[in-house]
Design a protein around this nucleic acid. Structure first.
Lengths: 156, 156
DNA sequence: GGAGTAGTACTCGGATACATTGTGTCCGAGTTATCTAGG
DNA sequence: CCTAGATAACTCGGACACAATGTATCCGAGTACTACTCC
């Protein structure tokens, strides 16, 4: 099991966007960490579809947060990039086993599926409890001049 | 993010092995749910390397649990199949950003990495708290004749 | 001087290739059970 | 009848293909700004 690289990139981008005002083009966000600009752009589109970012086309355009950083959880970003389905996929192989009932939905009754779902929920709960604003504040606490550095680095 | 199919197969196989005595060949375990036998065999090898199963070669050979089902957590099986590394991989892109210090290990200091690690630990904690014996007992509670059905289906 | 218009630079968005990983199959090495022959 | 050896069947183990997904790139559609021309 493994999260895509895009999760790291988009999370950092969201935190950085929380520190600036106007829209920032993907190329400038990518230049910060020397990332491939076009690919980052592609991933940010997923955040736009999830109503986490707003894209502004044309010159002086770019991406900005769609709402307050305190209203964007880490889970929101992860789900936008990775999709909503949970990590463990119960294919209900028990249905095809001895004593299996084709009319029973084993995604709810299979003890294994239940345990895996419980772990998944615990993971999501942690991510949902942490917002972009939390992370930004924590980062600023650890290195107080980071916001200003990002602002100047993202300036035209 | 997505766990491999093998997790479901190996977990069910471990529960089934907890209900029988001697070694069971992979082909017979696969036949239970009409799974590709050779591929299941390949996955069970990973459990052998992790000291969860013991393989017995030759005629009348197969796989059996290496220790008591109560001493095998779901996390043990998942780690054996998926590998030990956590889902979120921090590549420390902050190092290459403005104000980044090449001598700092941001896997421990980056606020994002910390949050993702916390979620990962919560997920692992849930899986570690649940054993094969727990799942087997839960399944037997829900359908009491399941163990006997499995035993006869796995008999030569 | 001001307004309208054509042109230009910039940005997102999706369509298109490449690389990595998951999925599935096949055959050989090694072991055990069985059968056979000899004492 | 018992024992030793050869044979055959069975099983794991890893090497070898195929498919799906993640990664990366490129080009077109659309917008805002700028410069120019005309009134």
């Amino acid at each position: 099991m493994r999260l895509s690289q895009a999760v790291e990139w988009t999370l950092h981008s969201c935190v950085n966007l929380a520190w600036v005002q106007g829209p920032v083009p993907a190329a400038r966000l990518a230049r910060l960490y020397q990332l491939p600009a076009a690919y980052l752009n592609k991933q940010l589109q997923a955040l736009v579809r999830a109503d986490i970012l707003v894209s502004v086309p044309g010159a002086h355009g770019g991406f900005r947060l769609a709402r307050d950083p305190a209203d964007i959880s880490l889970l929101d970003v992860v789900v936008a990039v990775e999709g909503p389905e949970e990590a463990f996929r119960c294919t209900q192989i028990v249905q095809r086993g001895p004593g299996g009932d084709p009319n029973v939905d084993y995604r709810h009754f299979c003890a294994i599926a239940q345990s895996m779902r419980r772990a998944d929920l615990a993971w999501r709960r942690e991510l949902a409890a942490r917002t972009i604003a939390d992370v930004a504040a924590e980062a600023a606490r650890h290195s107080p001049d980071a916001p200003e550095r990002i602002r100047t680095a993202l300036a035209r």
